[in-house]
Design a protein around this nucleic acid. Structure first.
Lengths: 186, 186
DNA sequence: TGACAAAACTAATATCATTAGTTTACAGTC
DNA sequence: GACTGTAAACTAATGATATTAGTTTTGTCA
């Protein structure tokens, strides 16, 4: 008996599985097989498959926050927005399963809520230089998230026919957005 | 035995179920219960649950196409883009389950492919007046789809905190986009 | 009326998640 | 160094799922 499995290892295994296979196909049987224990033993570390899904969602939210913060430091204005958008999209493309968990899992975990709130705070800070009115700020925040989320999810689901020039399309889209809020300001 | 169930009724039932409950929770047991027959009898009309999912996806694509075409007729330029975006979002918000099927189901059905191709053609026509270069046209198409898809999916998954002023946010976002492609042209 | 096909059914199998109850392994104590 | 208690693994069983096989019923048409 290879005693010594940890909850973290289980979530790690689940993350790998959902990123390589799919979030929908995640099962305890897969996780048990990868971690070398039997399915019921998993219940020593998680309360069920929903617990695993929520843990993935929380991890995803925290990782996105980290990636976004990393992209934002030392940058301001349009450069900051572009860097954040690019980093956000990159995370989604490289972690499609975990990101899917982030949006498809109802998650009351305070850590999840906190990471999301922090993300919103960072984005708000990045938009601060534009001195938008309260409603316009909300509009801009929603627009930015919609843009990046929409593009990335269509991208990982194969929604765009040919994969050519996806980078260029994304950059242009974000630039259009940046131009738009600039004009709103003026 | 209430003989006379049809495949259409089964898909209708499934559509109602996914829109009121959720796409993920769809099961043959639910459909059988709603249509008044036993689960195995469903196999006289569908090849399995994946067949139902694909049928939902195809229906969604066709309905979206119809809604978009309806919004586009008699309009041109910015008015056409706005009308199409609003109609698209409205469809998603009112048919969240069917729309989810549209994006989460791998669907080789030619009718599905055709509806998507037609939608792309309509959107291309709407952008024609802007006389974009070939790559810019592709960028704009991707941007428009990302925008609407992203906003609507975040909306139906409760991604935006408060539901206040969602209409205003959406309109402003689309206007920003329209302004952006106009400037690209000039 | 009788035969055939369509459409329902029951029964059975395999795969899930989950729970209950049991055994094993390790750590600290006498 | 044996002993005990707990943590962590296990086997076994249950209920829900999709699916398949085989059977019965129903309606239509000759």
């Amino acid at each position: 008996m290879a005693r010594g499995i940890t909850r973290t290892q289980i979530i790690d295994s689940a993350a790998t599985l959902v990123n390589t296979d799919s979030f929908a196909a995640l099962s305890l049987a897969q996780i048990a097989s990868q971690t070398g224990i039997k399915v019921p033993s998993l219940y020593n570390y998680v309360t069920g498959i929903d617990d695993v899904r929520q843990a993935l969602a929380t991890r995803g939210a925290q990782e996105i926050l980290a990636v976004v913060v990393q992209a934002a430091v030392g940058r301001a204005g349009t450069a900051a927005i572009m860097a954040v958008a690019v980093a956000y999209r990159a995370y989604i493309v490289h972690n499609p399963g975990v990101y899917t968990a982030t949006i498809q899992t109802a998650n009351p975990d305070p850590a999840f809520q906190h990471a999301n709130a922090e993300l919103l705070r960072v984005l708000t800070q990045i938009l601060a230089p534009y001195q938008l009115s309260e409603p316009d700020l909300i509009h801009a925040l929603r627009g930015l998230r919609s843009l990046v989320h929409g593009f990335a999810t269509l991208e990982i689901s194969g929604g765009f026919g040919m994969p050519v020039d996806l980078d260029a399309s994304f950059v242009q889209m974000v630039q259009t957005f940046i131009g738009g809020i600039s004009y709103t300001t003026a």
